[in-house]
Design a binder for these strands. Structure first.
Lengths: 170, 170
DNA sequence: TATTGTTATACTCTATAACTATA
DNA sequence: TATAGTTATAGAGTATAACAATA
C-alpha cells in the first residue's frame, strides 16, 4: 500500500533495473498518484471534518435521496457488506448526521436519511472535497486532463471484470 | 476504498451531476484503475503464491541485497513502522523464505536475507508479477503508455509532499 | 422459506508506545 | 542516553456467518 516502498523496489523501479518493461514504471506511477491523492483526501477529511472516506461516501449516497435509502440499498451502492453499513451508519447516527426512519409496509427495513445537520455538514464537506480534487489535477491543462481521462478509460476497460484466479492450493 | 461506490456517488459521478468539474470524473477514473489493478495483484499473489503485497514487497527489497538488510533498513525503505516489519519478517521466516542472521559488531541488529528457497520463490513471483502488470496495460499502445506515464508524472509532481493539514479541533 | 438488518468474529494493514537488550 | 528490535495494543476497513424479526 505504501508508495515509496515501490519507489525503492528493485522489481518495480526501472531506474535500477532497466530490463524491466515500461509497464512496471507506468503501474508504479499510477499507483503512486492514486495513493498520494487518496491519502490527502483521507487526511483532510479527518483533519478538517473529523470523518472518514466511508462515512463521506455514505453521506454522498444519501445526499441525492432525500427520501432515504434502505440499508440494503446502501450496501449494494457502496459495494460493502451489510454489517459494515450498519457500523458506518451507527457512527453517523451517533454524530446526529443521519437518522433511521421506519419504512411503512416493511417493518424489517429502515430508511436512512441525512438529518438537517447532516445536510449542512455534507454540503461543506462536498465543497471542500471538490476543491481538493480540482487542486490535485491543477498541474494539467484541460486538454491534458481530457487525454488522461481517455487513456485511463482504456486501462479501466481492459481491467474490469478480470477473471478471478481460482485458488490452486486451498 | 471501493470503486463502484464512487461510480454510484452523486458527488463524484458526472453522469448524474454535470455541474461537477471534470476533475472529479478524472479522479474517480484514476482511483478505479489503481484499485482494479491492485485488487487483481493482491488476489493473484494470494491465489497463486499464497502471499500478500507487503510480503512480496519485503522480499523484493531483499532480492537485490544478497548481503541482507537490517530491520531498520527495511522499515525505512518500505515506509512502514518497525513493528510491522517484525510481523512480516516473522511470517516469511516461518515459511522458510527469509532468515535473520547475526550482524557482527552489533548484537542488537539482524541481517535479514532471502534463503535459497526464498530466492527461488521470489523469482517465480516476480516473473508472474511482471506479466500481470504487462497484461494490465495491454489495452494501450507503447505510444499511449508513454503519454500516460508523462501525464501521471505531472500529477505526481503537483501532489507530492502536499502540506499536511494541521488538525483544527484536536 | 426468504429477506432485512444486527451482532460477532476475524483478517489485512497500518500506527504508537512500552519494553528488552545492546551500544 | 540512544538505538535495534520486539511485543502489545489499537484502529481503519473489510469479509463471512449466525441470528432475530418480519415477510
Amino acid at each position: 500500500m505504501d508508495l515509496e516502498a515501490r519507489l525503492a523496489d528493485p522489481v518495480l523501479d526501472p531506474q535500477r533495473h532497466a530490463e524491466h518493461p515500461e509497464e512496471l514504471r507506468l503501474w508504479l506511477r499510477l499507483l503512486t498518484c492514486a495513493q498520494l491523492v487518496e491519502k490527502n483526501l483521507r487526511a483532510r477529511l479527518r483533519g478538517e471534518f473529523d470523518t472518514t472516506l466511508p462515512r463521506f461516501d455514505l453521506m454522498a449516497q444519501l445526499e441525492r435521496r432525500p427520501e432515504g435509502m434502505k440499508m440494503s440499498d446502501l450496501s449494494r451502492r457502496m459495494m460493502v457488506s451489510g454489517g459494515n453499513v450498519t457500523g458506518i451508519t451507527d457512527q453517523l447516527v451517533a454524530e446526529g448526521l443521519v437518522e433511521r426512519a421506519a419504512v411503512d409496509g416493511d417493518r424489517r427495513a429502515y430508511s436512512v436519511r441525512l438529518t438537517a445537520k447532516g445536510r449542512e455538514v455534507f454540503d461543506a464537506m462536498a465543497r471542500a472535497h471538490e476543491n481538493w480534487i480540482v487542486q490535485a489535477f491543477d498541474g494539467l491543462s484541460p486538454r491534458e486532463q481530457k487525454t488522461l481521462h481517455g487513456l485511463l478509460g482504456k486501462v479501466k476497460q481492459a481491467n474490469r471484470a478480470e477473471p478471478v484466479i481460482p485458488k490452486q492450493n486451498a
